[in-house]
Design a protein around this nucleic acid. Sequence first.
DNA 1: ACAAAACAAGATGTGCACAACTGAAAGGCG
DNA 2: CGCCTTTCAGTTGTGCACATCTTGTTTTGT
Lengths: 213, 213
Amino acid sequence: MSEAAERHRRLYEALRERICLLDYPPGMRLSEATLAAEFGTSRTPLRRVLARLEDEGLVRSLHGVGTLVTDVDLEEMWQVYDLRMELAQLVGRLSPAAVTPELLAQLSGLVERGAALARRPEARAFARLNMEFFAFGLALTANEALRDLSERLYFRTARIWLKSIPNLVLADEVDIFRRELAETEAALRAGDLEAAALIRRAHISMSVARMRG
Amino acid sequence: MSEAAERHRRLYEALRERICLLDYPPGMRLSEATLAAEFGTSRTPLRRVLARLEDEGLVRSLHGVGTLVTDVDLEEMWQVYDLRMELAQLVGRLSPAAVTPELLAQLSGLVERGAALARRPEARAFARLNMEFFAFGLALTANEALRDLSERLYFRTARIWLKSIPNLVLADEVDIFRRELAETEAALRAGDLEAAALIRRAHISMSVARMRG
DNA sequence: ACAAAACAAGATGTGCACAACTGAAAGGCG
DNA sequence: CGCCTTTCAGTTGTGCACATCTTGTTTTGT
């Protein structure tokens, strides 16, 4: 990968994470000049990154105003969740990947970190772990288009989950998440990818219900 | 919409159409300077458009070489078609729209143009009609994310259909397309959006089978 | 004659200066 | 005091010059 592409990916993932972890809350004004200075580039490559984030709906640039972090429209987000659920289930049906020992080992690592999180619950660490579990789920399908679309939708909705945490009981959420991890591990040990996908869908559905309630 | 955004959309749609109608065949080298001159802008806004096309996988920019129209990797495309079929079916289930008289009138227009196409079959006109029918299909769901994703995938695969036409019998394809239009019209007149979605999925599936065969 | 090196043309990537625009604060006036 | 106007600081958008890179050609040395 070229040096320019490398930098683009680095900036893109950094900004996306800051937005999705609410370091840059909805409505916040990002300054191209400031960000460019922070990352040690000029505005030009940075603008290339912001353009991508804008195409993906995470920011919106207004001439003369600034680049604003988009707000999450709840009604639209529930629709996105509807779609995410369907895509999650498709992971089990479209080009399912082989369940390798490496994959199981990776999942065991997540389970362990889930246990650590239960001992000392913390929203931000939870959000990160959640992201990693999502990335793990993507590895279960070889359908690249499905992975791309799922990722796109995930990062589009990731913020509202973190935003809902104050209204929920963090410890309960961690417990539920750990159960999902355990269930997923059981399904994968049995080599049943479709079951794992259904579990994922079920948990997304229940998570939405708790957030809406 | 701002003037800049308007121009962006205009350039984007123009280039996307040229790529998908094979005016710009895979492998063709686009010159930023030439395109900018044609559209009467400088390279800067044009590069913003090319960046978007690159993020969507339609072109690829190589430093020192040029901006190349991507080739369609068949194995990947069949995966995309798998996904398109699922999304097409979802249109009937996720936030189905109301079947309005305007919608039916629009479909009647397409049926009429299908009849005209049958009298004088022509690949390019067929491709355009196909695109419009696709756009019509999107109007059947109110789920904006589903529309976005479907559109993305459609334009990602549109080229291989046009590329396969020489291996198929154009008149037969037109007939099949007209049958799909008629079936869709029947389903919508009955107010059965899910049936219309299933018909769409079935025809995508059969179309892929003919292209692969 | 051939191979390797140097050159040239042309492409995208970058940085900078300026244009266009917005929102708020300051100032003037009834 | 209230309201309109003007000014101003700050932001994104644009155009241009140049850096960097690739490829094909030309030149040169053996």
